[in-house]
Simulated assay, not measured.
Amino acid sequence: MSGPLRVLGIESSCDETGIALVELPEGVGGAAPPRLLAQALHSQIDMHQAYGGVVPELASRDHIRRVVPLLRETLSGAGLGLDAVDVVAYTQGPGLAGALLVGTGMACALGMALDRPVLGVHHLEGHLLSPFLSVDPPQFPFVALLVSGGHTQLMRVDGVGHYTMLGETIDDAAGEAFDKTAKMLGLGYPGGPALAKLAEQGDDAAFKLPRPLMRGDLLDFSFAGLKTAVWTQLNKLDPAAEDAAQARADLAASTQAAIVDVLVAKSLLALKQTGLKRMVVAGGVGANRRLRAQLDAQCRRRGVRVHYPELHLCTDNGAMIALAGAMRLQSGRAQASREYAFDVRPRWDLSTV
């Protein structure tokens, strides 16, 4: 295809509805980087807060309400109409089945109505490639630390679609450890940002908490034991004590420190084992300030470049889905299809993509 190629991205895997339009300035055969023309995002945080977590049925219904208005907002922001869309990319998995069906159904309906091809995208590949939309995009190859709500993975990335799993969580992911600890402390939903905010007031050395699987050369993660240790310490606290509030802040800080220490140590080990000098950190937990500060400091000493997506692209969003679709097309790793019969993949291993 000559001229620019515009890819519309639709994200609906969990509790954010995202629409975005990304352009390949030189089309599929060109080498110019994709650029974000416009995006719109709606978060369901306020709706789910009352329940302390995501309610799948409510999430699906809200995606249905939001997807068309967000599509109109995105096209308006880009100053373009539906006829300007060349390919519709959508999150096919992993995620909540009902939520995925909303975005997938919308994408395939749009594709059929416009006579445009569609392309299913892996949600985590979207996170993985999202730093390519930043002001400081990475270059292949690199080590990637994917840290989102339900996933903690280390991967070697040699190119689009060339992913080698180095290590992953064997029970609770880092995001789950943040969220579950926050829930124990009564911080509500979403837990990660709330825990990080409380941790700013605490002493991160006040409680001695475990750093699981830190011995040897293993790159897998385990945070279930840390969660149990936090629960044990919390039960020892006296809620009526004069320093109860400070103790809770100290426990939050100590928990955050334990999680970050593990993530940083495993990342450095992965860099050492691969011999690579470039790293990408992506996913919601990648926005954590302590993680960024420690990883930046440690990598700087080792001559390693670290790349992050912009903060507004750390959460689930349509831009990362449009980008992943565009980069797959540009690299020849995928072809969009006019086959509009669809299914979703709630469980989908990124290493198989």
Rank of each mutant, 00 (worst) to 15 (best):
A182C: 03
A324Q: 00
H123S: 08
L80T: 01
L237K: 00
A341S: 12
M165H: 11
L226Y: 02
K197F: 02
R61Y: 05
S12P: 12
M165F: 07
E26P: 12
M47W: 10
P193Q: 15
S2K: 07
A84L: 10
A32R: 14
P25V: 10
G192S: 12
G18I: 04
K277W: 08
G149C: 08
Q330H: 00
L124K: 02
D316M: 09
L271P: 01
L185H: 09
E23G: 04
A247C: 14
A247L: 14
D158V: 05
T181M: 11
L24V: 01
A32Y: 12
L295M: 13
G81N: 10
P131V: 13
P4Q: 04
F223I: 08
A265K: 12
F207M: 10
K180H: 09
G175E: 00
L37A: 05
G30E: 12
A244G: 03
S43K: 12
A334L: 10
A326C: 13
L114N: 06
D136F: 15
L100K: 11
G191W: 00
V306Y: 07
K277L: 06
A241L: 12
H123Y: 11
G150A: 02
L128H: 07
T91C: 14
L128Y: 09
C14V: 02
D217Y: 12
A326V: 03
A247S: 15
A78C: 01
L350I: 00
G167M: 05
H162G: 01
R65M: 14
L71R: 02
T169G: 01
L58H: 11
T17K: 03
T104D: 09
L313M: 08
W231K: 15
V28T: 07
Q273V: 11
L129E: 01
V157L: 11
L291A: 05
M214T: 07
M165C: 13
A258F: 03
S254R: 06
R65Q: 14
G186L: 07
L263G: 01
A20C: 15
L119M: 15
G77T: 08
R72H: 13
I10P: 03
G216H: 11
A177R: 10
L37F: 04
L114S: 04
L124A: 05
D343R: 15
V28F: 14
P56G: 15
G188N: 04
R215I: 07
Q153P: 05
L37S: 00
L251M: 13
